[in-house]
Design a protein around this nucleic acid. Structure first.
Length: 707
DNA sequence: GTTCTAGAAC
DNA sequence: GTTCTAGAAC
């Protein structure tokens, strides 16, 4: 399965060239005497090849379930069905498709892009319950090569293990480094096969689209919105737990990982929609990779069980992962200290946890766990949204410590199983009694704290608002580890405020100087008050693009913003809004968005007020586009919400800037800036749902960005 | 932030 | 040959 240009034919060819298995490739592009044929021809061809005892590749896009269902149904269970999904970046597929139809000139190329876009919008990843014994999802060239190797090595009577392989993050927000893919040489000999990959799809769709514009204008419901935007947020009870007994208690990692996976598998379904997260501080954690591999083998739902490298006491503030409960691998006295996770959690939770723990129990025996509700005075509660700590004691295999099991792994494994059962039972009891402890609850809890600066007028918005940060493990984790350094551990607080900051270059000082010395810049300033200065962006990226500068020394960027700046943020928003409305009164077709760059290039906090036409000669590169049209752009309304609730705004990774180019309305992908600009100049699709909410878009009253 | 430009992509 | 991107310099 895969879009045109994803490399299906190449895949088959490379396998068949070396494989000792009798393969037959059924390709709709060539099945009609070397020309494109029909689906029925493919079905018949496949059936007869199977009857002859051959193995068959169905070389066909098969992106939606309906298309592939007939092939799965073709033969009974005696024939094993596999899916290999070439889920490569849209841009790469487009680029290859355009290349192979290029002889017809640009128009053809443009249609290829349109077709790939359209097809990808219909993409449904296959599921095992469609009838596949094995599914392999390839998301980059490395995955593809691995799958090629796997199938090449498959002898005539060999079998592959069943299950789902490959990451399922179909809604990955960042697809980086397209150029890296393109720079790679195609495998030798593929150039002659590439030319006949699925032209039928392109031709037939291209014919249908002959009268339409060169690029897809999706006037349909923008399905891609859910894939590329921030709409879906995890809002579910989550337990973060460290690996029990494998650190100080020296429990064998391989055995421990087996038990973790076994117990997770047992509980993951009992827990309903709740989620389990195995956490380890180390970036190269052996236990994490063992567990990850074994969980994948067992096909455990990756939405319900994840592994996460990071500091368990800062999962929300540093990792963007909100966990309702965290497990503490403690000692039998339930006392702080001793190093490791126990020391870290007691230290981060403050004396409140010690008191609450004492009130619950005096000691703990191996294999047991106790649930301790965390008082709201604990920083773990207020900062991280953790409502419960579950202390758990595992078996001790460390001969240097008292009461060790003398290498008795029969007993050790039994106790470790008990420990995880007790832990997950404890979590289950929280889930049951709390109903749905969610981010919303977390936010409600936070709101209980006195917030003098906060008006009560927008409470309604808050309830609907999408809770703060998305979970984006890889990105988050990378920057997170960079900040913490590899060995920052149990010491607790104090080292997280300072991030690695680039120094400002001389060219980055212009806005700072304007804000601090407005009198020197009278010619460009269009409004000035004690709090802010407003000016037109020197290189506007849209018809209307202005900046509202904060006039506070030391407030260089969003990362510097704290709760004390809430009033200022609201002032800036108000000023920006006023200007947007002024522009709207002159041109009622404009639509505005107000927000900040997560990592600005210019010093001095500045709010962008920018019209959504992006019609500008200054918009020249990917960074320009993505800085306004990826999660890197933080809407002012969200920043205000986050700062008022958490005291800081979430910043998104700079990697978003190299994300593939997608239309901000219909979310279609485009191979380069000129093509993107040609598309957006006429795309009238409705904006993604995310932008239609909470006043993120500013437009004329009565006008509807939805139509 | 932009400009410049080599070299890749087309 | 022309278009486009990415990285360095500023």
């Amino acid at each position: 399965m895969g879009a045109p240009g994803s490399g299906k034919s190449t895949f088959c060819d490379l396998v068949m060239r070396v494989s000792t298995r009798p393969w037959v490739r059924i390709c709709q592009d060539t099945i009609g005497n070397g020309k494109a044929g029909t689906k029925n021809q493919c079905l018949t061809g496949a059936a007869s090849a199977l009857k002859e005892g051959k193995s068959v590749f169905i070389d066909r896009c098969n992106l939606d379930r309906e298309q592939r269902a007939d092939f799965v149904k073709l033969v009974g269970p005696q024939v094993e069905k596999h899916a290999v999904v070439l889920d490569l970046p849209a841009k790469l597929c487009i680029s290859r498709s355009v290349k192979r139809t290029g002889h017809e000139g640009n128009l053809q190329g443009g249609k290829a892009a349109a077709v790939v876009n359209r097809m990808l919008q219909k993409k449904e990843l296959p599921k095992l319950n469609e009838g596949y014994a094995r599914i392999t999802v390839c998301q980059d060239e490395k995955d593809v090569q691995a799958a090629i190797n796997t199938y090449t090595a498959l002898g005539p009577s060999d079998k592959l293990p069943p299950g789902f392989f490959g990451q399922k993050n179909s809604d990955a927000k960042v697809q980086l480094g397209i150029m890296k893919f393109l720079k790679k040489k195609d495998p030798p000999g593929c150039s002659d096969t590439v030319s006949n990959v699925s032209p039928e799809n392109i031709q037939s769709h291209a014919t249908k689209e002959r009268d339409s514009n060169q690029v897809v204008e999706s006037h349909e419901e923008p399905k891609m919105a859910s894939a590329g935007s921030n709409i879906s947020l995890e809002n579910i009870p989550t337990l973060a737990f460290p690996s029990i007994s494998t650190a100080d208690f020296h429990f064998n990692l391989d055995k421990a990982s087996d038990i973790i996976v076994e117990k997770v598998e047992e509980y993951v379904n009992k827990l309903g929609n709740a989620r389990l997260v195995l956490v380890d501080l180390s970036q190269n954690s052996k236990i994490l990779s063992l567990v990850k591999a074994k969980a994948a083998e067992k096909n455990i739902d990756s939405k319900k069980f994840l592994t996460f490298a990071g500091n368990i006491t800062k999962l929300y503030s540093e990792g963007g992962l909100h966990c309702t409960a965290i497990a503490n691998a403690t000692n039998w006295r339930l006392k702080p200290g001793g190093g490791g996770v126990n020391a870290a959690i007691f230290s981060a939770a403050g004396p409140a946890l010690e008191t609450a723990t004492k009130a619950t129990a005096g000691s703990l025996s191996p294999g047991k766990a106790i649930v301790v509700p965390l008082p709201s005075s604990s920083p773990l509660f207020s900062r991280e949204g953790v409502t419960h700590v579950i202390h758990v004691l595992g078996p001790n295999m460390n001969p240097q410590r008292p009461n060790h099991l003398n290498n008795d792994y029969v007993k050790g494994c039994q106790i470790l199983r008990e420990a995880y059962s007790a832990l997950f039972d404890g979590f289950a009891s929280i889930v049951r009694t709390q109903g749905e402890p969610s981010k919303d609850n977390f936010e409600k809890e936070l709101k209980r704290e006195p917030q003098p600066e906060q008006g009560s007028t927008n409470g309604d918005q808050k309830a609907k608002r999408e809770a703060a940060p998305e979970v984006d493990m890889n990105k988050k984790y990378k920057s997170f580890v960079k900040e913490l350094g590899p060995n920052v551990g149990s010491s607790g607080d104090g080292n997280t405020g300072e991030q690695t900051r680039k120094a400002w270059g001389s060219w980055a000082q212009a806005l700072y100087d304007t804000a601090m010395h407005p009198e020197r810049h009278k010619n460009i300033i269009i409004e000035k008050s004690d709090d802010v200065v407003v000016l037109n962006d020197l290189y506007p990226k849209a018809q209307k693009h202005l900046l509202v500068l904060a006039r506070v020394e030391g407030l260089d960027r969003l990362a510097d913003v704290q709760k004390e700046h809430l009033t200022l943020l609201k002032t800036m928003h108000g000023v920006g809004l006023k200007w947007a409305e002024m522009f709207l009164s002159e041109n009622n077709s404009l639509i505005f968005r107000l927000g900040y760059h997560s990592v600005p290039s210019m010093r001095q906090l500045h709010l962008h007020v920018i019209s959504q036409d992006f019609d500008s000669k200054h918009l020249k590169n990917k960074k320009h586009w993505n800085s306004f049209n990826s999660p890197f752009f933080r809407d002012s309304v969200d920043v205000i919400d986050e700062v008022s609730q958490n005291g800081r705004a979430t910043l998104k990774d700079e990697n978003f800037l190299s994300m593939e180019l997608r239309c901000h309305r219909c979310r279609s992908a485009h191979p380069n800036i000129p093509r993107l600009k040609a598309h957006i100049s006429s795309c009238q699709a409705s904006f993604p749902a995310f932008l239609l909410q909470n006043g993120r878009l500013v437009l004329l009253e009565g006008k509807d960005a939805d139509h």
